[in-house]
Design a protein around this nucleic acid. Structure first.
Lengths: 208, 208
DNA sequence: TGACAATGAATGAACGTTCATTCATTATAA
DNA sequence: TTATAATGAATGAACGTTCATTCATTGTCA
């Protein structure tokens, strides 16, 4: 079941990245120390430097992981039977996926960091463009897009939907209430209303 | 033109806050040093500590300023003759106001910071609630809100519009292109299309 | 097989630097 | 003179990073 030398290296890297994700989400990039990360991973500080050149390269490795994750979402969305279902896939992965609001905090931090780290900004722009192109294409190919009452190009619709997604994600970091799930349910509800408005299926719209 | 002792104090404070805003936007909260801020303000480090208890209190003072600013926007929006014009006021202040994307970087940083600073999170939640209540009210009172083809409550509409705003603001930090103004123009264009869809004025909708 | 050599993953104390904060001192104004 | 404003060198804690050292595992040879 285990461990060619290559696998070991990959395992260590992902172990470190997982720990780093927890620390970054809890404390932010600049307040999480390498010692915090090593403690979270249950290894020594020095070992991190065997697998990563420095702290910044840990950060960009995580951005790379994020990129891969986004591509997976897009792949899954493409397989959905209808446009609205595809959007639902994208929305829920973006917002809820694995852990609660860990991801939100991390992504917002990523954007904040990108505003002064050009390399990271390039990476995020790239991720964003890929995802946006994918959704634009999804919309352009979808018959539902022609049924809506709107007056928008596929590209414009994609930009609208992504901004909405990101905005809701950004607002997630303020949640501290008893029920985070409840709030996300409400966000999803609102997003659905918009989708229905933009992409009214030709079938029954009577599901209020 | 100047300076009861109280005025002097206020001037110094705003001078420091203005410098801090520049530094925070350029480098982020944790990478901007107190020396950076003092240099930007053209004063000594020690003097900052005469007007602020510590670095964190500089940050929350800025959040307070942000709150006041948001309230001003809301006030101006309330005076607009139509709902769509009010939204335009809010959108453009949020995104363009004084300096270019300085504000975007700052606000995204503020949210990132709020995800681990409960006091700051409380403050932002408060700002957000005030603004949201204001817009909800604006929508509820507006006759146009009944004309749209949507199926949404005023509160839901407000949440939708705010998420859109924040999402576009968040995306602004990735801009580094030759023409930032061009991109914001496009954002405004898309936002307008949505507004028109949601709040179709009874007058001519023929302005494609 | 058993004795020895080589490897390199892993450790964590130590280093140099940076930074928020303090405070003794100096300038200014009343 | 006295009170207040302002300075910036000094402080000490915290951080990213390094590296001499340990030691379990693997390879080699008789």
């Amino acid at each position: 079941m285990s461990s060619s030398p290559l696998d070991n290296t990959i395992d260590r890297r992902t172990q470190i990245l997982r720990a780093a994700m927890v620390c970054f989400a809890k404390q932010g990039f600049h307040q999480a120390t390498m010692h915090d990360i090593s403690a979270e991973a249950g290894i020594s500080v020095g070992l991190i430097y065997r697998y990563f050149e420095n702290k910044e390269s840990v950060i960009s490795a995580m951005a790379d992981e994020h990129k891969a994750e986004v591509n997976q979402w897009l792949e899954r969305a493409r397989q959905a039977p209808t446009l609205v279902e595809a959007l639902e896939v994208l929305f829920t992965s973006h917002c809820c996926e694995s852990s609660p609001q860990v991801l939100s905090a991390f992504v917002v931090d990523l954007f904040a960091e990108a505003s002064r780290n050009p390399r990271l900004a390039d990476l995020l722009r790239d991720v964003s463009k890929t995802a946006m192109d994918g959704v634009t294409d999804l919309i352009a190919r979808s018959p539902e897009a022609r049924n809506g009452v709107h007056d928008m190009e596929p590209r414009e619709l994609a930009e609208l939907l992504f901004a909405l997604n990101d905005g809701m994600l950004m607002r997630d970091v303020l949640i501290s209430n008893p029920e985070p799930a409840e709030i996300r349910e409400r966000q999803l509800h609102i997003a659905r209303l918009l989708w229905r408005l933009l992409f009214a299926s030709t079938a029954e719209p009577a599901l209020t």
